[in-house]
């Protein structure tokens, strides 16, 4: 077990190095001068452009630029954006927003998805099951933009229940609407996964045996059937945590939440190398860590899946 975790951690470090280099290359390969682009429609004297390029090492060849960056990272300095703001500070302001959003959405997926899945499996082919399944189809097929704008117009503009944008009212009010929108797809997927696999297990021989032995129905469902039905859902939820963190981009944009997705999007547009590398690398690392945790959870849920070397 320990050996397994060590190997995975070494892989993490290697991934980190590879990812930073790769992203740096990609940002560097974008055509054009980011300083000029930042001015947009407004004029910027040539002297100012030259001075700023020198200040942020944009006038140096790629290996030198990357070397400056790696040197900085080794000293714990993630660099600055082209307005002189430290990347670490930018990320520190924005990570909490994205984490809060993603985790709220994730918990919603977990709770609502499980509940709906179990309910519809137990009420198989009855009205409740049918309604839930139709709703999940809608949730999966309607684009997230449409769900987001509809939610804003109905719950924000017309009913005035929840704020439309920003985080001024804090958690939970400011995060509820975007988290629900972000979680719709996941809730639908989780409930379908749980339903299918729970129905399968409920028909299995060992459940019939358990019932035959006279175990109470609640115990049969929770202890035996449900536990074995969770593996697909856990796989999904584990991968989804990483996806939620990276995928908050659209929701952060529509609901104007100052999170990491917004920062990443703006930085790519402006070719802010150090910011893009910092944000993207952290996203990749989070994804890898989430995957590691899920893999370890498998072993707990199903002892047949084991990472211990026999």
């Amino acid at each position: 077990m320990r050996r397994y975790i060590t190997m995975r951690l070494i892989a993490l470090v290697l991934t980190f190095l590879g990812v930073t280099l790769l992203i740096y290359v990609l940002v560097y390969a974008l055509p054009g001068d980011p300083i000029r682009g930042m001015a947009g429609d407004r004029p910027l004297p040539e002297g100012v452009i030259a001075e700023l390029r020198a200040r942020y090492h944009l006038d140096e060849p790629f290996p030198v630029q990357y070397w400056y960056y790696v040197q900085g990272v080794l000293r714990g300095d993630l660099g600055t954006d082209f307005n002189g703001r430290p990347v670490a500070e930018l990320m520190a302001d924005r990570w909490p927003v994205t984490l809060t959003l993603a985790l709220t959405a994730w918990v919603l997926e977990l709770v609502a998805g499980l509940a709906l899945g179990v309910l519809s499996a137990l009420r198989r082919n009855r009205v409740l099951d049918r309604v839930v399944m139709i709703l999940t189809i809608v949730a999966i097929s309607v684009p997230i933009f449409v769900i987001a704008y509809t939610a804003q117009l109905v719950l924000g503009v017309h009913m005035r229940w929840l704020p439309i944008s920003g985080i001024a009212e804090g958690w939970p009010r400011s995060y509820l609407l975007p988290a629900v929108v972000l979680a719709t797809f996941g809730i639908a997927s989780v409930s379908r996964l749980v339903r299918t696999s729970l129905i399968e297990n409920l028909d299995a021989d060992y459940i019939r045996t358990a019932r035959g032995k006279g175990l109470p129905s609640r115990k049969v469902v929770t202890r035996h059937a449900l536990r074995n039905s969770l593996i697909p859902a856990v796989t999904y939820l584990g991968a989804d945590l990483g996806f939620l963190l990276g995928g908050t981009l659209i929701v952060e944009g529509v609901f104007n939440l100052p999170g990491i997705g917004q920062l990443l999007f703006a930085s790519i547009q402006q070719q802010q190398g150090p910011v893009v590398v910092g944000v993207a690398t952290l996203l990749v690392l989070t994804f890898l860590v989430a995957n590691l945790v899920v893999d370890l959870l498998y072993g707990v849920l199903d002892p047949r899946i084991s990472h211990v070397r026999r």
């Binding site: 909490p96 809060t100 001024a168 009212e169 804090g170 958690w171 400011s174």
Partner: peptide, 30 residues
């Protein structure tokens, strides 16, 4: 095995909650 399992589940849930509440502390009052 069961105790371990519970501990893991509790740990994950606890981490999730802690993260959510910790993140929400820095809100701006209008």
């Amino acid at each position: 095995m069961k105790g371990k399992r519970r501990a893991v589940v509790a740990l994950v849930a606890g981490l999730g909650l802690a993260a959510v509440t910790a993140c929400s502390s820095g809100t701006v009052k209008s």
